[in-house]
Simulated assay, not measured.
Amino acid sequence: MTATITAFERSPDGGRGLARDMRVRWALEEVGQPYEIRRLSFEAMKEPAHLSCHPFGQIPTWEEGELVLFESGAIILHIAERHAGLLPMDANARARAVTWMFAAVSTMEPPIIEREAASYLERDRPWHAERLPVLEERIHERLGALSTRLGDADWLDGGFSAGDLLMVSVLVRLKGAGLLDKHPNLAAYVARGEARPAYQRAFDAQRAVFHDRSVN
């Protein structure tokens, strides 16, 4: 049965691949599974039909028969557990890959999202100039720890895994902000992720939606 995932009808990221459906698309491309997309307007995301799938009215969701999931990390874990290619066969390595999945969405992503929100919502506030360096210092602390752990390795723990997929998806949000400049091994890590054919297929599919909607 082909799964259906939800995505923005008009993504606020301008087609840069930052919306969280992108990471689910990438996972499906990595394991070679087909999928369908249901595009939602911001209004539709708050209607009862979608809230029954995602109680917080966000995207993406996953629908496959009677199974409905939300939260991109949970969806990717579901995909990785069912299809080879995103989790190692060795039990200990598998557990470590799952740990990196949680680290990406629980440790690395929150301060990055907080900085983005401050830039969008608080730019005109009198405290913004003082608060932004504090937020960026918090990000640098976590980037520094991640950089040290990665070292000169290609991926976080041996071969590419769902942990890397999520971590790269999170770090991509820093491109253009200058925050990866102090950590060249992380910049190279992100570039390796973006260079994967599965990432490129997912990115092209997500960007095509933006262009289609921009023309209409």
Rank of each mutant, 00 (worst) to 15 (best):
A129N: 11
R173N: 07
E130V: 00
A191N: 06
G158H: 07
G176L: 10
D154S: 14
D181E: 14
D181M: 02
H140E: 13
D124C: 12
W155G: 08
L121M: 15
F160D: 09
R131D: 00
G163F: 02
D124H: 15
H140Q: 14
D152L: 00
L165F: 04
G159L: 10
A129R: 15
A118F: 10
V170Q: 05
G158L: 11
Y189A: 07
E122Y: 10
G176E: 11
S161E: 07
S147Y: 01
E130N: 01
L180M: 09
S169W: 02
F160E: 07
I139A: 03
V170K: 04
H183V: 03
V134Y: 01
L135E: 06
D152I: 00
G159I: 03
H128F: 15
V168I: 15
Y189T: 06
L150C: 09
K175F: 02
A187D: 06
E122M: 13
H140K: 04
A177G: 15
A187E: 10
G144P: 10
A191E: 13
H183R: 15
A153S: 03
D181K: 09
W155R: 11
L150A: 06
L166Q: 04
V170E: 05
T148L: 14
L171I: 00
A145E: 10
V168E: 05
V134L: 05
D157M: 00
S119N: 13
D164C: 09
S169A: 14
R131S: 03
D154A: 15
R173E: 15
D181N: 12
A117D: 01
P126A: 03
D164Q: 02
K182S: 13
A191F: 01
L174G: 00
S147M: 01
R125K: 14
K182F: 03
D154P: 02
G158T: 07
Y189N: 09
D164L: 06
L156N: 02
A188T: 10
A129F: 07
R138K: 14
L146N: 08
S147W: 01
G163A: 02
S161W: 04
R131V: 04
L165A: 10
G159Y: 02
L143C: 07
E137G: 13
V190T: 03
L180K: 12
P126S: 05
D157S: 11
A153N: 11
W155L: 08
T148K: 15
G159T: 12
L171E: 00
G176C: 11
G144Y: 10
A118E: 04
R149P: 00
R149T: 09
R142M: 06
L166K: 01
K182L: 07
E130R: 12
A129V: 08
A117Y: 06
T148Q: 12
S161L: 09
R131H: 03
V172F: 00
F160L: 08
N185S: 02
T148R: 15
D181H: 05
E137N: 13
G151I: 08
R149E: 12
P184E: 05
E122R: 13
Y189I: 01
E136K: 03
A191S: 13
M167F: 00
G158A: 04
V172A: 00
H140V: 10
D124N: 15
E141W: 02
V190G: 05
A191H: 04
Y120D: 14
L179E: 13
L156K: 08
R142N: 12
F160C: 02
P126D: 04
H128P: 08
E130D: 11
L174M: 00
